[in-house]
């Protein structure tokens, strides 16, 4: 029996918010984010679409609204359908806690407190 799809709740009206983003670092070449809650953090390099999604999500953002905003900003993609590309990017960002969907914790409230995130010493 297959396990249920954890992203089945990503319908057009689902609310999207910024996730547990501790820091962002950008150059002309792209953007890297540090995300997570103590003691586990992850550093990810975002795709250009991921950068735009992170910039656009905020209070009142839904998946449908995000698609509209991206279409207005970027136009239709040369390859593939925009809704498919946006959904795939949202799923990826959600899995890494860069954005939060639905009724999850509010990242602004539950931001990392700066507690210890040391890695376990290995090879010692």
């Amino acid at each position: 029996m297959s396990s249920p799809d954890p992203d089945s709740d990503l319908h057009a009206d689902v609310a999207l918010r910024r996730g547990y983003v501790v820091d962002e670092f950008s150059t002309d070449e792209g953007t890297v984010v540090m995300v997570g809650l103590a003691p586990t953090f992850e550093v990810l390099r975002l795709s250009p679409l991921g950068v735009e999604i992170l910039r656009l999500v905020g209070p009142g953002t839904t998946l449908a609204r995000l698609e509209q905003d991206l279409r207005r900003l970027l136009g239709d993609p040369a390859v593939g359908e925009l809704p498919d590309l946006v959904l795939a990017a949202v799923v990826e960002l959600r899995h890494h806690s860069v954005i939060v969907a639905g009724q999850g914790h509010n990242g602004a409230i539950w931001a990392p407190s700066g507690a210890d995130d040391r890695a376990s010493p290995q090879g010692a």
Binding site: V22, D23, E24, F25, T27, E29, G30, T31, V32, V33, M34, A38, F41, E42, V43, L44, R45, P112, G114, D116, D117, R118, A119
Partner: peptide, 27 residues
Amino acid sequence: DVLDALALLAPETSSLSLFERPLHHLA
């Protein structure tokens, strides 16, 4: 490049998040 360097180095650090703007600190 610095973006890849941050992604590659961060897993090999300890307590990086305790610094103000950790990615900028590392960069």
